[in-house]
């Protein structure tokens, strides 16, 4: 077969660097524009619901991850094990009205409307690092309130040693719950002192607005020194218990996911290293970031585990 020798490219045919780069900008802008065209106009016109929420001193002074990355890369097995599919499927969830059932070792059991919870618990902005057990991380400006403040008002009895959280169970909408990839509904839990810690929050928003469904709307837990799977989404039940709750990932693979799940670069997952993390939104040539013990919150939380062997209680 005849193969022609490559002809030289004329100088004027080579794209100017500036033109090439402006094209990239154009593509970015065009993508943003086409995405915004799909949203109702009012969302664009109005500032976010929490635009004027005060920043908390508990925030870290680190640049936040692009919102676009945070809303398009989510682990939400209730919808799908695929991070992009779960984002799309979660749109089908109705998050208003929403109520939370409180039960167990408490003097004030009952069903609480989310609006009432938010009336009693003023929100603030908390910029936290979020580290997934899959070795990626991001920095998110959450909007939420300290879980401890809410729990105090619920007057736990002296028997309450743990707090158990449960996600909504609705396989009609949460289609991932039709498969048995995890035991449904998703359950997470904290020891009482972890739950009462000022860093632990219940989040209802991020980036100055309400939480997108895929990020756990309308109410999720955020425990910044623990792996992401502890930060349970779409909470419908809070139960004070005397015994340690059986949590979803721990039940599914006890050798790989412990109850505590504190971020710890020294204790690797049985199948991969936890010493580094890929920061979402970083460029192709940015090296991974060294993971910090307790995700950088050691000063505040290491005391909770001073008497414990963290390789055993991972």
């Amino acid at each position: 077969m005849l193969i022609k020798s490559q002809t030289e490219i004329a100088g004027h045919e080579i794209t100017d660097r500036k033109v090439f780069e402006s094209r990239r900008q154009f593509i970015k802008a065009a993508t943003a524009l086409s995405a915004s065209a799909l949203l109702p106009n009012q969302v664009q016109a109005e500032p976010g619901k929490y635009a004027n929420v005060a920043a908390s001193p508990y925030s870290i002074a680190v640049a936040t991850t692009d919102r676009e990355d945070v809303i398009s890369y989510t682990n939400y097995y209730e919808f799908s094990t695929n991070k992009q599919d779960s984002t799309l499927l979660a749109k089908g969830l109705t998050t208003s009205p929403w109520s939370v059932e409180v039960l167990g070792e408490t003097e004030k059991p009952g069903v609480y409307h989310l609006e009432d919870i938010l009336k009693d618990n003023p929100v603030e902005e908390r910029i936290y690092r979020f580290r997934c057990v899959e070795a990626w991380s991001m920095v998110v400006p959450w909007i939420g309130f300290p879980l401890g403040e809410m729990l105090k008002k619920l007057k736990p009895t002296s028997k309450a040693k743990f707090v158990q959280f449960t996600t909504l169970y609705n396989p009609d909408i949460m289609v991932g719950q039709r498969s048995h990839v995890l035991e449904w509904p998703y359950v997470e839990g904290l020891r009482m002192d972890e739950a009462m810690h000022p860093l632990t929050i219940l989040a209802t928003g991020m980036y100055g607005d309400t939480l997108p469904n895929q990020n756990g709307a309308p109410l999720r837990l955020i425990v910044p020194w623990k792996y992401g799977f502890k930060s349970i989404k779409a909470i419908v039940k809070i139960e004070f218990t005397e015994t340690m709750p059986a949590t979803a990932w721990n039940k599914s693979a006890p050798g790989e996911y412990g109850f505590y799940a504190n971020v710890n670069p020294e204790v690797s997952h049985p199948r991969w290293s936890q010493s580094r993390e890929r920061v979402l939104g970083s460029s192709l040539f940015t090296p991974k970031r060294a993971t910090e013990k307790f995700n950088g919150y050691g000063e505040q939380v290491a005391g909770l585990y001073s008497a414990m062997d963290l390789t055993k209680f991972f």
Binding site: R24, I27, K28, T31, D66, E68, D69, V70, S72, Y73, Q84, W136, R278, L280, G281, L284
Partner: peptide, 11 residues
């Protein structure tokens, strides 16, 4: 090249 590889482009 067009920055369309998502939140975790290396992955």
């Amino acid at each position: 090249i067009n920055d369309q590889l998502g939140a975790n482009p290396i992955e």
